[in-house]
Computed example of a mutant assay.
Amino acid sequence: MNSVRSDPPPDGRPADDEAGDRYDGPRVALKILVAGGFGVGKTTMVGAVSEIRPLRTEEALTDASVGVDDLDGVAAKSTTTVAMDFGRITLRDGVAIYLFGTPGQERFWFMWNELSRGALGAVVLADTRRLTSSFASIDYFEERGTPFVVAVNCFDGADRYDPPEVRTALDIDPHVPVLLCDARQTGSAKEILVALVEHALRLAGGQATNGRGESPRAWQSVSSAEE
């Protein structure tokens, strides 16, 4: 599992020492990517879970993008991420997750190689109205051997499909978790991150699965939220 350990407090004492209270850096930092097609909800998801004001590099869509960006299904979208989104969430025991949202349009894919360096894994957001927009992200992480989960962002008014149906449509390997989520909801987005971390641990020789390749706890939590 890829992780980056932060330096200890300058004086070498434990962080829970009185003097160490001034040291706010995490003991362990994990890097996670949030990927997917254009308009699938990457910026929304990063903003939903970030404890800091997320960094966004959104620019307005102009006439120059006509015929270049595919707005099918997202005609109301007026901005696009041109570099990345960035957010942070701190867990207990000094573990911090740094989230990097990738640009969705093909002309910005050159950013992916830089953003993916040192990443623990990736969340691939999918929109059932435009499932084909997820293929590029899935192929990229499969080719690099990067652990990833597929999170179906349940947009209002979109047809709902069970995860097995989505798995078949996307031709995803059985061990890759496929979950439902609402990228706008903090709790739902956090469960996806938990599922990814657990999946990465399993691939590294850690925990067992429930037989379907999914994280039992994360799956149950998301399923309960949908009921």
Rank of each mutant, 00 (worst) to 15 (best):
76 A>C: 07
67 G>E: 09
48 A>V: 02
72 D>V: 10
51 E>R: 13
62 T>W: 04
137 S>T: 06
92 R>L: 11
99 L>R: 05
55 L>S: 13
79 T>N: 09
120 L>K: 07
80 T>M: 13
33 L>Y: 08
50 S>T: 09
140 Y>H: 15
66 V>T: 10
26 P>S: 11
129 R>Q: 12
30 L>R: 14
130 R>N: 12
42 K>D: 00
112 W>E: 06
126 A>N: 07
115 L>I: 09
49 V>C: 08
122 A>W: 07
34 V>C: 09
130 R>P: 01
120 L>A: 09
110 F>A: 13
116 S>Q: 14
124 V>I: 12
105 Q>F: 06
46 V>F: 05
93 D>S: 14
71 L>Q: 11
98 Y>Q: 12
128 T>W: 03
128 T>F: 02
108 F>V: 00
138 I>P: 03
35 A>Y: 04
62 T>Q: 07
125 L>Y: 05
78 S>P: 00
134 S>I: 04
76 A>K: 14
82 V>W: 02
136 A>Y: 03
126 A>F: 10
44 T>K: 02
26 P>C: 09
92 R>N: 10
130 R>M: 01
28 V>D: 12
102 T>R: 06
124 V>A: 04
118 G>I: 08
121 G>E: 07
134 S>W: 04
97 I>R: 09
42 K>G: 00
94 G>W: 10
86 F>K: 09
38 F>K: 04
40 V>F: 03
120 L>S: 04
52 I>T: 15
64 A>F: 10
48 A>P: 04
77 K>M: 00
135 F>N: 12
111 M>W: 15
92 R>S: 13
62 T>L: 06
35 A>N: 06
135 F>P: 01
71 L>Y: 10
51 E>H: 12
44 T>V: 12
135 F>L: 10
88 R>D: 05
68 V>Y: 07
103 P>T: 07
69 D>V: 14
29 A>M: 14
125 L>Q: 04
51 E>K: 09
141 F>H: 13
83 A>G: 05
41 G>S: 07
136 A>P: 04
111 M>R: 15
93 D>Q: 14
53 R>L: 12
132 T>M: 09
81 T>D: 01
58 E>L: 14
105 Q>I: 05
31 K>R: 15
112 W>S: 05
45 M>F: 11
134 S>K: 04
127 D>N: 05
133 S>D: 12
137 S>F: 08
115 L>G: 07
27 R>W: 09
88 R>Y: 08
134 S>M: 07
38 F>D: 00
83 A>H: 14
128 T>C: 13
139 D>C: 07
83 A>P: 05
27 R>T: 12
43 T>C: 01
46 V>I: 14
80 T>Q: 11
28 V>R: 15
131 L>Y: 01
45 M>Y: 08
26 P>L: 10
57 T>V: 07
83 A>S: 14
